[in-house]
Design a protein around this nucleic acid. Sequence first.
DNA 1: TATTGATTGAGAAACTTTCGCATTACGGAT
DNA 2: ATCCGTAATGCGAAAGTTTCTCAATCAATA
Lengths: 151, 151
Amino acid sequence: MVAYTPSAMKAELHERGWRMTPQRETILNTFQNVAKGEHLSAEELCELLKEEGAPISLSTIYRNLKLMSRMGILRELELAEGQKRYEINQPSPHHHHHLICVRCNKTIEFKNDSVLKAGAKMADKSGYHLLDCQLLIHAVCPACQRSIMPV
Amino acid sequence: MVAYTPSAMKAELHERGWRMTPQRETILNTFQNVAKGEHLSAEELCELLKEEGAPISLSTIYRNLKLMSRMGILRELELAEGQKRYEINQPSPHHHHHLICVRCNKTIEFKNDSVLKAGAKMADKSGYHLLDCQLLIHAVCPACQRSIMPV
DNA sequence: TATTGATTGAGAAACTTTCGCATTACGGAT
DNA sequence: ATCCGTAATGCGAAAGTTTCTCAATCAATA
Ligand SMILES: [Mn+2]
Ligand SMILES: [Mn+2]
Ligand SMILES: [Zn+2]
Ligand SMILES: [Zn+2]
């Protein structure tokens, strides 16, 4: 779990016989510059890049979101219903977890280094190479507890 | 996060003006009797119940997996790609987390009460009513580290 | 600069999940 | 025990997300 520069990503791609492309660099830069707490879906990233005048096809976005997640550059989140969301994967001082209301999807980010350490230790102990470690808390927020809404 | 009996589930449904049904009881019993470490998808549950001679329609299964997750009876897991998986949500002595290889999907379950406590504390501090707390570790297993496979 | 194979873009296809609606049946009241 | 209002089911259709196919393009190496 390191913060990636384009050239670091390029080097790691080359190790495996793969290539750096303008599209991959654009995606990396976009996630590094997006506001903290933003969790982009594939569709949203596609729209954002279109607006910014650097469009990338949806197929390519899907391919690279998966690739970059499996490299440990991005983290894949299943927060709300329906689609996966992504954010840059940052090491300890910025690393965080998510607390989600299952009714309204309100999401709180919080830090907990001892949880991160416990996860890293577990992966290490099992001989796994760590890519991402996220504590996912499903709960009902105060507002939704007061409402009489379905489920 | 309590272990549910059919009648406890029934009581909680009634509190909200809802009903207990044979289908809901079947689903609850199935998850309580399935082998530890099994994570069923909607489709798999549907097939299993068909084989056992107590078929339930796929729509109803989807509806109730969501309902029971939001009640805290089941926990919703996004382990492998493609579809959500479910397991019974059990309290502390049996509660566990998941370590997943992103390449071959080999999954290890492990316990860590201090992580669970940290999650519960975080939810409580924020006034959220806790439903589920899972540490999700994405990593590459030893076998896949040795292989030269794509990503 | 030429070559090779990874990558892209566009649309089709696959797959999971939700929706609409007629029918069934749970559970409170009679 | 029976009735009634409405939640829940089952079926098929529909929606929505993600993957696949394949010709065209382009990154990286010699
Ligand atoms: Mn986040
Ligand atoms: Mn499990
Ligand atoms: Zn809420
Ligand atoms: Zn593996």
